[in-house]
Nucleic acid binder design. Sequence first.
DNA 1: ATGATGCAGTTGTCAGACAAGCTGTCAAGC
DNA 2: GCTTGACAGCTTGTCTGACAACTGCATCAT
Lengths: 259, 259
Amino acid sequence: MKTPETKPPPSLAPTAPARRSGLSARVAEELRRAILSGVVPIGGKLPSEAALTASHGVSRTVVREAIAELRADGLVEPRQGAGVFVTAIAAGPPQPFQSVDPMRLSSAIELLELRYAVEIEAAGLAALRRSPAQDEAIFEHCAVIERLMREGASTVEADFALHLTIADATNNMRFREFLEMLGEKAIPRRAVQRSESGEETPSDYLRQIQAEHRAIADAISRQEDEAAREAMRIHLKGGQMRYRKLLRKALDPTYQTSC
Amino acid sequence: MKTPETKPPPSLAPTAPARRSGLSARVAEELRRAILSGVVPIGGKLPSEAALTASHGVSRTVVREAIAELRADGLVEPRQGAGVFVTAIAAGPPQPFQSVDPMRLSSAIELLELRYAVEIEAAGLAALRRSPAQDEAIFEHCAVIERLMREGASTVEADFALHLTIADATNNMRFREFLEMLGEKAIPRRAVQRSESGEETPSDYLRQIQAEHRAIADAISRQEDEAAREAMRIHLKGGQMRYRKLLRKALDPTYQTSC
DNA sequence: ATGATGCAGTTGTCAGACAAGCTGTCAAGC
DNA sequence: GCTTGACAGCTTGTCTGACAACTGCATCAT
């Protein structure tokens, strides 16, 4: 089996790309798909190892390792002498907030409201607890966003990084944990990026965003929690309005002409 | 892949006891334990297959199948030629907010802060969006809590139900979803119930709680979002103080005498 | 000091063999 | 006719040996 020629780093980094292209992983995935798609019903039996070996053109070892993976997933239960049976157990615990349809406006807005609840409070706590270094980092992120805006580049990631820095400044890791869990679901990147790269950013819009960011950073710097919360609320409300507009236009190109 | 054999055995029931006593399952469990207990650090390498074969007294096939299970768990990443490395990924998809130690005060408080962020905003949205029926339900829950308090019974569940009703009144299911996900982790029931059942509830404390609940319910009823948020903030801040006291006493029975 | 090469050790896959267990069929007994 | 036991065929579980592909490190040449 050939792998790509690129040499991996000598030490494993947490962000090292996963390499799951082995045969057993592939067979496991195919079987997993067959099970989850209902081709094999719950309680039903997979083909025998010998049959899978033949039909997938791999050795029995590969088939067995694939089945071992499915066993760990809780998808199958092998019974010696009898066969490998699909169990009634669903794959893993339910992921939170899964039922998000990025193309449904209300779905995304609902998640945004939840996220904003956390971010408003985070701003208040950040004002009370931030360290000087965290204070500085917040301003730095504001500057990065402003630069990206002037260049007409996408600010989605930089904006998110600012919010994460504010969450860090609460010195309660649960806030970052929450935002990381939720962040990618709350803003469908495709829609936003398409709109952002496709049009000129008005300079009054730039100034508005800058002013809002500055108001938040200043309130946090002054350690005024109420002002920080209010500044964040204004920013997010404005962002929500902007986001609604973006989404409406992305979903319905004729929307603006009808306004 | 051929048509799978779908003839179920007559003896398979969803509640059939699992038979997982195979060697590979055993080795997988031992390795899993070693990894989760930190014997092998994250980023560290498991012993080679040959070494595991020797140390566990099993064939290499068994070791490989065990490793396949761990791979499915996301605990390890085998790298051909290099070894099997413990990944930074926790078992399965990350469960949110898992690292909660109920006996560590700061751990619970951190989660409470996150929860309170959501609840404060929920109160504001509930004021804007509640239906008359939801309005009534909130008052009813207040009455239930008051009754339970007068009887000296535990109000933990009734209190949580009130907060869920407020979340429902936002008419954004994400708020309830969040609270349900987080609710049981945020208040360690053992500690709170022990303290609650063990002492007399002062009547001024009762009145304070009642007043706070009423202020929230009234603001929501009047559809004043800012007042609702502020009332909820006061209630939760007071509750946080009370909770800190409870926890400190539960952890250190001599705490009150030293105050 | 740097780059290339070789080698020992590692994982990935294949094949064959035997053990343990399950299922279905058939015959014997009641 | 129904139940029970025996048996054959098939299945999974484990072991063993072999080779391919890959990695990491030591050594050597420039």
